[in-house]
């Protein structure tokens, strides 16, 4: 595979309820990513978007998001009904063809108009799961209980993860949930859906993220510090939650191995752990030791713009390399219930 680099990235601040429409809050994000990449809109040979029409409650809502890209004169573009991290994967594959040298990937979601507990069951098996109203918090609670029963996590550790995420988010201008708080106070809160308390859950967020990719020659020509994608892979597990081990993430482990995380030390990991217990599960699946800085941005517990949050992890991992001098980082994105599908991307500086 040819080396592809990240040459620009941007995010919107995550908000509980954005007053702007999705194309409106996407526009400045895409403009900023392109500007930082030091290219022009007309240089982009391929555009791929990740979004979910169910969130807007409107078929082909994703087409309107192209207003934020500018689709005249006609452009070459595609869309995935997935997190923007998978849009980046498609753009990365597209660049391998070698006939274009710049691609744009973005993800956006406006969760505020709907109720996630009613919308998410629609992504599940329509005969055995959707009619039960199997919502993401309940599904995650089944997973957390399984981990507690197995002894691979404690409620105390889950609260510690939440506190650390909020503390890290204090310096992240895009985060939605910040602050310190202490573990004992959080553990005195009632359960939302036992064994999960409010701090174990992600916020409901509106937001967007965008990344500009380039081939090696183009990246060196326009960018002082390109961030190289050394490996990227995604894997999926059975859909039925009762047909896999919820206390492990085999698909994350496989994706990590195929993305080459073992080829060198990881300094920073940005993980799409949308529930506190999932951070520990992912750390173990990826073999990340205590020396690895996990979610310095605050992660998905601090801001969860659905369909943009995974791509935001890639943007944050790239930011750690290009702005904070980290030499090797990994980003993780997820899709489906209880970490059913997982993507791992390994990034390096020089």
């Amino acid at each position: 595979m040819d080396d592809i680099a990240i040459i620009g990235y941007a995010q919107s601040p995550s908000q509980r309820r954005a007053e702007l429409t999705e194309p409106q809050f996407l526009f400045p994000v895409i403009s900023e990513a392109i500007e930082r990449a030091n290219v022009e809109r007309r240089d982009i040979g391929f555009t791929c978007a990740g979004s979910c029409d169910y969130l807007s409650g409107q078929t082909f809502a994703f087409v309107m998001n192209l207003e934020a890209v500018g689709a005249w004169p006609p452009i070459s573009e595609s869309h995935v009904e997935m997190d923007g991290a998978w849009a980046l994967y498609e753009a990365w594959v597209r660049l391998q063809h070698g006939d274009i040298d710049v691609a744009l990937a973005f993800g956006s979601g406006k969760s505020s108009p709907g109720d996630p507990s009613e919308i998410y069951p629609l992504q599940l098996d329509p005969y055995t799961l959707t009619p039960l109203g199997a919502d993401p918090v309940s599904m995650a609670a089944l997973q957390a209980r399984a981990m507690l029963d197995k002894g691979t996590i404690t409620e105390q550790e889950m609260a510690e993860i939440a506190v650390r995420s909020r503390t890290n988010a204090a310096n992240n201008p895009y985060a939605q949930v910040r602050g310190s708080g202490d573990v004992d106070t959080l553990l005195r809160e009632p359960y939302v859906t036992a064994p999960l308390r409010r701090h174990d859950l992600p916020p409901i967020s509106d937001g967007a993220s965008a990344v500009v990719l380039a081939t090696a020659d183009k990246a060196r020509a326009v960018c002082e510090r390109p961030v190289w994608i050394r490996g990227i892979d995604h894997r999926i597990e059975p859909h039925q939650p009762g047909m896999r081990d919820l206390t492990e993430s085999i698909s994350t482990r496989q994706a990590g191995r195929h993305a080459g995380i073992d080829h060198g030390p990881v300094e920073v990991a940005e993980l799409s752990a949308t529930f506190s217990h999932q951070e520990k599960l992912l750390r173990e699946a990826l073999g990340l030791g205590d020396e690895v800085q996990v979610n310095p941005s605050g992660g998905a517990l601090a801001a969860n713009p659905v369909m943009a949050v995974g791509l935001a992890r890639i943007a944050e991992a790239a930011r750690a390399i290009s702005e904070r001098g980290v030499s090797r980082a990994l980003a993780h994105a997820t899709s489906g219930q209880c970490l059913q599908q997982n993507l791992v991307c390994v990034l390096e500086g020089a």
Partner: peptide, 20 residues
């Protein structure tokens, strides 16, 4: 494994607290 639903949604199969 199980999860205790304190406040069922209108899409849930039972209208009072239950376990998934």
């Amino acid at each position: 494994t199980w999860a205790w639903v304190t406040e069922p949604t209108r899409k849930h199969p039972l209208d009072h607290p239950f376990a998934f």
